[in-house]
Design a protein around this nucleic acid. Sequence first.
DNA 1: CGTTAGCACTCGACTTGGTTGAGTGCTAAT
DNA 2: ATTAGCACTCAACCAAGTCGAGTGCTAACG
Lengths: 352, 352
Amino acid sequence: MAREPAKIAELDERKVKILTAVIRNYLETGEPVGSRTISKYTDLKLSSATIRNEMSDLEEMGYIFQPHTSSGRIPTDKGYRFYVDNLISEKEREIQEREELIIEKADKLEAVLKQAARLLATNTNYTALVSTPEIHRNKLKFLQLSKVEKDSLLAVIVVEGNIIKNKMIHTGEEIDEDTILKLNLLLNTHLNGLSLEEINLGLITLLKERAGIHSEIINSVIDAVAEAIRADEDLEIYTSGATNMFKYPELMDSGKATDIINTFENKEELEKIVNASLAENNAGKNEMQVYIGKEMASPAMQDCSVVTATYDLGDGMRGTIGIVGPKRMDYEKAMGTMQSLMNQLDEIYKKK
Amino acid sequence: MAREPAKIAELDERKVKILTAVIRNYLETGEPVGSRTISKYTDLKLSSATIRNEMSDLEEMGYIFQPHTSSGRIPTDKGYRFYVDNLISEKEREIQEREELIIEKADKLEAVLKQAARLLATNTNYTALVSTPEIHRNKLKFLQLSKVEKDSLLAVIVVEGNIIKNKMIHTGEEIDEDTILKLNLLLNTHLNGLSLEEINLGLITLLKERAGIHSEIINSVIDAVAEAIRADEDLEIYTSGATNMFKYPELMDSGKATDIINTFENKEELEKIVNASLAENNAGKNEMQVYIGKEMASPAMQDCSVVTATYDLGDGMRGTIGIVGPKRMDYEKAMGTMQSLMNQLDEIYKKK
DNA sequence: CGTTAGCACTCGACTTGGTTGAGTGCTAAT
DNA sequence: ATTAGCACTCAACCAAGTCGAGTGCTAACG
């Protein structure tokens, strides 16, 4: 969780080269990487022995470690962090535009988000994570009661951001059209433009008085409004491609993959991740975040990394999109794909 | 897929006893069961040698088989089928009422179904599968346009079964209240009570004529109605507890579990199962189905069994609920839990 | 002084051979 | 028809040995 900057100054140029070589190689193979491999892999002409010394230093400094005595090295969380912070940003921009994901136009936001998740998952071979927007400051924009059957009314509620909610209200007795008209007028004059917080007990009492014998209905309506708005507060989170986790032996073999997929079914855990991302993004807009291992709040995820971004569709509709993968995920690709997706989301919802 | 009746007549009483003993034992342990085990397990006092002979017969008849030479026996699909068809029905009824699942009342059908799935999964330790109802013959029950902003109308559409759909229509120009009133009257007098099929081109043309300069809006509305209704035709399917599949070694070790969970993410495959169940249930109402291994259309599922039931909430709202588990699932428990759930669903939606 | 070659050492992964035990099929005796 | 007995099979387990990739350390080299 605590995330230190990991300054580049701490390492001289050669160490940086070796560290990145280790990381790059490990990203590809998923196996611990030894000194001999590095000595051939890099352009600097050094023998394996020298590399060994440097690697020993790097280990002491906490960037890499050995899973068991005398085997190759593997990057630590700190190592990955360094890599992500200092070494990606340059390359990323070139790649990101390489191939465009294609989001078919779909009208409903929910469908778009689901499709986005699927796209991310299939493109990256990791797991995608999408949270539906949390509705901020939702003011009531439109409220209407209509008679649908003899003894039931339909309340249609539209809040800022054009979120529409419906609620059937069973009245028990028949209500005539005239009364409905009056109720509609009453409700609209008093409630329109208000936010949930502004609809307090005093206002409700006032409304009930005005409604006279139909105060019962007012109750139902207020309930409906409250419930409708509240219902959107516990946000939905979709995942897609969860089983991609199985493709990575280091997770599969240790049985971690199962744990991880289990937490994908657990809303609370996912919320932790999403919320962390949202919070961090309140200040710096539209930046991508990368959380590595223990930087994540969720314990089961400590063998993963996640790339998150926050989308903002205006009207206070903000949500998070994430790509979850093993620590040795291809950060460049993940971030590139994510960026591309965000661009497209922007495009779709900007012209509307 | 082909499902033979598996008559009880084919087997004498002793063979039946031995077969059930094999199956019961295998259901519990998940390991191949040998002759010695059976000779102790059953009440009939026979030596292992005799059992061996009988088992040899049963193998020849296709009820059991050996995973490799000289190991215990495991039931075949045919064996399970026999068990489910002939040996459960008596016991099942007693058990089913044993413990009541508790569905908290929730207003929205979707939420209820999701919760039902979660309940099934946690109660049985298998994977639950729920399809949202396919809406049959949905007649238009209520249709209303309202002005929400200067240049946008909200169309609220209610179809039989109280399915509510909303659609924003951007008009480009401002529409005055009077026109909206007229349009509403026009639409309601002509469309109310009609099904999708009945809204044909002739009717649409008529409406457009009557609407005069606002024929544009009629177009949008008809589109909205059509889309709203059609949108519900590609049914949603929820799964819950998918990871429970990992709990069964015979699936886990062979890597089948991964395949299975993968198909849980694949809508088309799930539809096969759901549709098979729905079709079969058109005739005999409210019966439970059991599909074993190859009886299922989906190839990846051939190491599973599934217990399905069809719920019917009236108004042509029918859908399928399923419990997916390994072939050696506890059929009694699964069927009992399912029955209990169906009862509760019935109860919730009967009194409404 | 940084770099390199060489050597001893470690340790997981794999192979081999042997043992065990559950289970079978078959045959002969009851 | 049932059972006891025997030879056989085969997965699972274990111990010992080999292999190879990799390390740390030291001494030599430019």
